[in-house]
Design a protein around this nucleic acid. Sequence first.
DNA 1: CCGTATCCAAGCCGATACTG
DNA 2: CAGTATCGGCTTGGATACGG
Lengths: 144, 144
Amino acid sequence: MKKVRKQSKFSWEHIKDFCDTLTEAEDTLTREIVSCISDKWSLWTMSVIAENRQPMRFSRVMEHVGEISQKSLTKTLRGLERDGLITRKVFAEVPPRVEYTITPLGTEMLDNVAPLWLWVATRVRRFQDSRNAFNQRQPAIRKQ
Amino acid sequence: MKKVRKQSKFSWEHIKDFCDTLTEAEDTLTREIVSCISDKWSLWTMSVIAENRQPMRFSRVMEHVGEISQKSLTKTLRGLERDGLITRKVFAEVPPRVEYTITPLGTEMLDNVAPLWLWVATRVRRFQDSRNAFNQRQPAIRKQ
DNA sequence: CCGTATCCAAGCCGATACTG
DNA sequence: CAGTATCGGCTTGGATACGG
């Protein structure tokens, strides 16, 4: 019986046991959800909607998010809706109105990302130093 | 003076104030570092090296990580080294030997990612349900 | 053994144009 | 107003071949 370690997994110390209880599908989905925090727009869009404290129209979200294109915003919002992080409500009016709201799950998500983000941010100088040092020593093993 | 909101930022509640103290370069770097957790191999590679508890050769890392290609593993390891998350030690021998070790910063990183990962993993069913429901109702606004 | 170089396919994302 | 459709550039990562 060949033990194939699934790609893209993460397990570490005390969470290892729990991770091992997940099916492969669950494990894959977990990674997908976690990965949204490095999606170019997802996290920022969520925090924009969350901080508004009330339903937000498409165009207002677009204003606040910034330089995003319509296409990308639509795609981002659909993804967040699909995962239950925001809700999308369409009003049958002319002109059309669509309102987006953060869900409790979405708020929880933001609250859980924040500590990690903060940890990285407080160490950003150290990372910068490390990169500078790395770039200054000649690329390892470089021929000549 | 046009206030251009940098892309790809994240700020939320109590971390907002701290994030605002970062320069744009620092903010960008923070996002880059955070993003490594969704890199296909970085996190998994780090946990493999960390759990080994001792320096690990390239080929052994490759075995444990699994289906990764040499090229991707090299690239992943270089990135982690550059950011100070692992160390890379070359021995001038024949045949060549290179050993990788997790750094304290790398361990800290893993420890800080774990809670988020665990939170997502414990809610994975909810995310799955949300996706199923989303896929079953006809795509919003879909014509006909 | 531990890489580097090259080619190539897939996917992301912006710009632009069009629609109910 | 809030999308959809299409194109095209850029990046990412696998496969393969080669090198010190």
